[in-house]
Nucleic acid binder design. Structure first.
Lengths: 162, 162
DNA sequence: TTTATTTTATTAGATTGTCGAACTACTTAT
DNA sequence: ATAAGTAGTTCGACAATCTAATAAAATAAA
């Protein structure tokens, strides 16, 4: 919009750290795809599982909201998860229309077994740095996130959570 | 009806910077989805455009390789991009079987107009830090990327590039 | 309380995006 | 010159999503 001719692709010279941010994002994507492969589920179903794992048992409508899709689609998501034993439907005791979707213990621990080493590994990196350097890192990330948020018009759905 | 605040990630307390990494990734996902909305293309087609923009005009087979999909699927990707004027097919002068897919100038500058402010904005954050702090940040990200790469069995496709 | 409205989840039918296999046109190797 | 390989398309099938139309239950209104 604003700027005139820019024929230089995303590849104009940037700080090394900026490149690393891009590398990190693509490494993250590969991690998610690895996770999906391990659990034998597609992207959507993997995202559903992470919501079920971190958000506790959920109803179909709530899950639909979090996945940014219709409840009809969620019905099939849960069908698929049930089919491979990753989750089950239970009746909601306080609302007989509603369903409670519960991730299976085995699947939760399988997923956690893959996710936790990654998270703790990344978290421990910070322990390699003295406190005041950690502060610098935190400030930097804080600023980066705020830049992202400033550029994106703040609505819209559709992202992959971890 | 709507939940109170459920911002509990899988697991235990982590450094603030680790949380910010997660926030950044999800902000990035939203940015991509914003981009797709603006250019009126789906995720795959957006990814194709970024490859065409940053990788120069490509053949269908090469594009298929970069997108991690069949050449048959790429045929339809390019059909869609052509339909909305984001790209055109040309004949490869040195191989009469082959096609050269060229992104339209208007679409390139539209995309760049959205992408460049983000990239430069993020890159400029580093200018707010003195050189030795930039070094700390770079080291940190280097370590994080290496953790990611260590955890993922290093094959497989399927990620969104920017 | 009976009726009307809203909410929850499912099913049905249409659409989109992908795949693999078959095919055409061309290129490269023998 | 013939055989083999490569580039891209078309075709038929399938998976994942959507919207619209239910059915059943909860909630609000009368």
């Amino acid at each position: 919009m604003t700027n005139a001719d820019e024929t230089e692709a995303p590849g104009m010279p940037v700080h090394r750290a900026t490149e690393l941010l891009r590398d990190m994002i693509s490494a993250h994507d590969e991690f998610l795809s690895h996770l999906g492969r391990e659990l034998a589920v597609n992207t959507t179903d993997l995202t559903a599982m992470t919501h079920l794992i971190s958000g506790g048992p959920l109803g179909a409508t709530e899950l639909a909201k979090r996945l940014g899709m219709s409840t009809a689609a969620v019905t099939t998501v849960v069908d698929r998860l049930e089919a491979v034993g990753h989750a089950s439907r239970f009746q909601n005791p306080t609302d007989r229309r509603a369903v409670v979707i519960v991730p299976s213990a085995a699947s939760v621990s399988q997923a956690m077994g893959l996710i936790m080493p990654m998270i703790t590994g990344i978290d421990r990196v910070l322990d390699e740095f003295p406190a005041e350097q950690r502060g610098v890192i935190t400030n930097y990330l804080e600023r980066v996130v705020s830049i992202y948020q400033a550029q994106v018009p703040a609505h819209a759905h559709g992202a992959m959570q971890l």
